[in-house]
Amino acid sequence: MIDYEKQSLKLIETAEKLLSDNTVDVVLGVKDNPEVGWPTPYFARKPEDAKKLVWTEDCHVNLANYLTEVKGKKAAIAAKACDVRSIINLIAENQLSRGDITIIGMECAGKMQNEKLASACDACPASVPNLYDIAIAADGSETYKNLEMPNSSENVTEWAIHTTVEERLDRFMKEIDKCILCFACRQACQGCYCVTCFIDRKATPWEQVDADTATKMAFHLTRAMHLAGRCTDCGACEKVCPSGVNLKYLFKGLSEFVEETYDFKAGMDPEATPVLDRYSSDDKQVAFLGGDSIVGI
């Protein structure tokens, strides 16, 4: 379906060209890493570096995060559809400037992790990025093929309607029980770019970081709240967790709610104002005493 060899060659060729004519200072991509078992981030800074770049079926890393680190420099990034949603999100929130970034849009039909389709990928709506400067299609050409995506992820709203509060609490507790509060999920997340995270603030002892249930609950719920309408479903949090915590359903459930109630989807339009940064005087009275009832739940 996807010719990774041709995509790799095309990517190297593109990166070499961009670096040698000084269009960009750095190309963000991935290189082989036999120890880890899948390709890991690589920053190509010289035209001869470009040869190390690869593109494979298991290069599932979201590189958007690294763009904030090379801020101010001209950077090109090899990006899948989900990475591009993250980049758009960062542009919309004034973390990146569009003019500095050259997006090399890689066509993608889902990435493999541990020999199966990464669980984030089954929710992916499109094989093609919605914003790009240079296209590298499935066959290495420049015309996207618009491959069919599995799109078989669970509908969290449906799930919530058909479960009881206790069942939902069970699922949540089972996940956070595994958590060791290492905050790898936060570090890997494109949306978590705060200089000092609320959980790290020293001035107010809101949270004491000893892995008790109350702290874990407060951390994960607040993080989910902060990512409401901003999560781009890239699955980086889940891929990076050393304990196998998977709370993506919370983020997904909120995305569904935001889309349904406020008609907003993260990572679609770099010009859009984030959903919690604006209001409308005729917003529904969802969740209010005597107001419009919350759908199903």
Binding site: V156, R168, M225, G253, L254
Partner: peptide, 13 residues
């Protein structure tokens, strides 16, 4: 608050 309430409901509150 609307979003928060949905979140809490999903998490089993």
């Amino acid at each position: 608050f609307s979003i928060l309430k949905r979140l809490l409901s999903l998490a089993g509150f």
